[in-house]
Amino acid sequence: MPVRITHFGHSCVLLETGTARLLLDPGVWSHGFEDLRDLDAVLITHRHGDHLDPDRLGPLLAANPDAELITDPGSADEVARFDLHASVMRPGDAREVAGTALHAVGGVHAEIHPEVEVPPNVGYLVDHGAFYHPGDSLHVPEQAVDVLGLPTGAPWLKVSEAVEFFRAVAPRVAVPIHELTLSREGIDSALHRFDSLAPAGARLVVLPLADTTEV
């Protein structure tokens, strides 16, 4: 089943599955999600600021009183400092939100440098693989993935690694996310490589900011 996706910059996307409205990774470099309403859940992959902005998360949840906050274990500790309660998902956990299935996978943040400590990272498979958000990870799930949120640039990422991740997951569609560590020229260069080196049968769809696209 197609999903409707709205990209708010960097790692933040709104998914509309037909039964649920899910916001993933509203971080400090993402904008435009603050006015969203009727959310069923907000999902956080890990506690880094470009994925989790507690200052805006509190007001967002207050404006969406029926939305559940779902996080990895490390982010649960972080949001608790702001008097926010989270339901924790760990790798292997499965649950349902508003009729949409969620599966947590991975668990390990990609290495930035051997001397840099990294937090837990949970990737979310939404609606049995209709969409996969890996957070800061290149974990390849066992389940088939229809639409992949494809990391584009990061301190932990080379374009060759992103391409091999794209090929290993082999989705029908990849939507580039996690792009704001790069210049415009760097983003365009990565997108060119993704498009030219895509796995057979897959296509790259670049989402316009803050516009909803069905894929």
Rank of each mutant, 00 (worst) to 15 (best):
H192L: 11
T19H: 15
E142L: 04
P171R: 08
E117F: 13
V105G: 01
P120Q: 09
E117C: 11
P120V: 10
L150H: 01
D93K: 13
C12P: 02
H51N: 15
G92V: 04
A62L: 13
A154R: 06
P73N: 10
T71E: 08
A80Y: 07
F8W: 11
E161G: 06
L102G: 03
V145G: 07
A174F: 03
D146P: 00
L23C: 08
G153L: 07
V13A: 09
T212Q: 11
I70R: 10
S189E: 14
T212W: 10
D127K: 13
G49S: 12
R184W: 12
H10N: 15
A101R: 15
D195M: 01
L180T: 15
S11Q: 14
L39A: 08
M1H: 11
W29P: 00
R167N: 05
A130Y: 00
G9P: 07
G74Y: 01
T152G: 06
V205C: 05
D136W: 03
L52I: 09
A94N: 07
L61K: 09
T181F: 15
V88W: 02
A154P: 03
A94C: 12
F33A: 07
L24N: 05
D40G: 08
R4W: 12
G186S: 08
L43D: 14
V145T: 09
F131G: 00
V126R: 01
L191S: 06
R95A: 12
V105D: 04
I187Y: 09
A86Q: 08
G149Y: 05
D93N: 12
A154N: 08
T212N: 06
D195K: 07
M1I: 03
G99T: 12
H103A: 09
H113S: 11
R56S: 02
V79Y: 13
L148F: 02
H192Y: 13
H139S: 01
H178P: 00
D50M: 03
A130V: 00
A62V: 14
H85Y: 04
T17L: 12
D66R: 15
A76K: 02
V3Q: 05
D38Q: 12
P26Y: 08
V206P: 02
L52S: 14
F194R: 04
V173G: 03
T181K: 07
I70G: 05
F166V: 01
V169Y: 02
I177W: 05
S183A: 09
V163F: 06
N121D: 14
H128R: 15
T71I: 09
F194C: 00
E179Q: 14
G9C: 12
D35A: 15
P176C: 04
P155G: 03
H85N: 06
H178L: 09
E68M: 14
G32A: 01
F194A: 04
E214R: 12
V163W: 02
H178Y: 11
D136N: 15
P114Q: 04
L150A: 04
